[in-house]
Amino acid sequence: MIETKQLTKIFKIKKSPDVPAVVDLTLSVAEGEVFGFLGPNGAGKTTTVRMLTSLIGPTSGAAWVNGFKVGEKDQDIRRSVGILTESPGLYERLSAVKNLAIYANLYDVEQVDRQVEKYLRMLGLWSRRDDPVGSFSKGMRQKLAIARALLHEPKLLFLDEPTSGLDPEAARLVRSFVQELSEQGRTIFLCTHNLNEADRLCDRIGIFKSRLIEIDTPENLRKKLFGRKVVFHLREINPRWIDSIKAFAGVENVQPVDEKLVVSMDNPQVLNPQIIRMLVESGADVQFVGELRHSLEEIYLQTMRETEQEGQA
């Protein structure tokens, strides 16, 4: 679906140093995958989306989208993908129907009226179809912009900050719709600042700041950065138990925190029953056992910190 090889975009600005927005980006996104593209403001996420949707050309490197090469088959690329831009960019004086009909015609959709009705109904905007878009709430506009990106039934969707600036209810609606699109088998390239959203929706995540810093599933990123940790809640802690747990092969570290033992290990499925058995046999009252799950936010911040430290070094 998406393949890039050392994709680079450098902006040349008169009388100023060149600005490398995207450097040597190599990645591939498979069909049906929801790929999260995370990075701070100005990281080059939008520039990447613009290159992949053939809106701007790369300075060097190459990219293929839906089998079409960027820079050679630009119109085919634009015809085969849907894009939700950072700002919805709707025609505020025109009705929802008119807004969508314009785009349906530009995408050469065969049954314009049917497609417009289908997506207005699907996104709950049918009752407001004839109202000028200027009277719509932010959430409604975002939904209309999503409908616009889907009119020509693209298999690949680029969503640039789809829930940015929305209230929690509208954001939840948009997220569940993205989930629905993913279940329909569409490939989604999702740029977002919302790390919970990325955690919930994405199969894989790329952390990006001009360069691709990390790329993996959220679970693997957790493992890679923090390892796996299990928390044993006990009534009280006997220091001897810490040494006993450390003696298990596969346990990397044991950290007492209040009445809890935080155990870093590589295979909790195998080690947890053994540790619990040992603790119970040693007289410990085990109250709860659970995995310590780092949020994507922690992963993201940790990755960024490490990148900055490497940069300074």
Partner: peptide
């Protein structure tokens, strides 16, 4: 209104 970008993203 930033409406040029979605317009330019069509096959036009």
């Amino acid at each position: 209104t930033h409406s040029l970008e979605p317009l330019l993203a069509t096959p036009i």
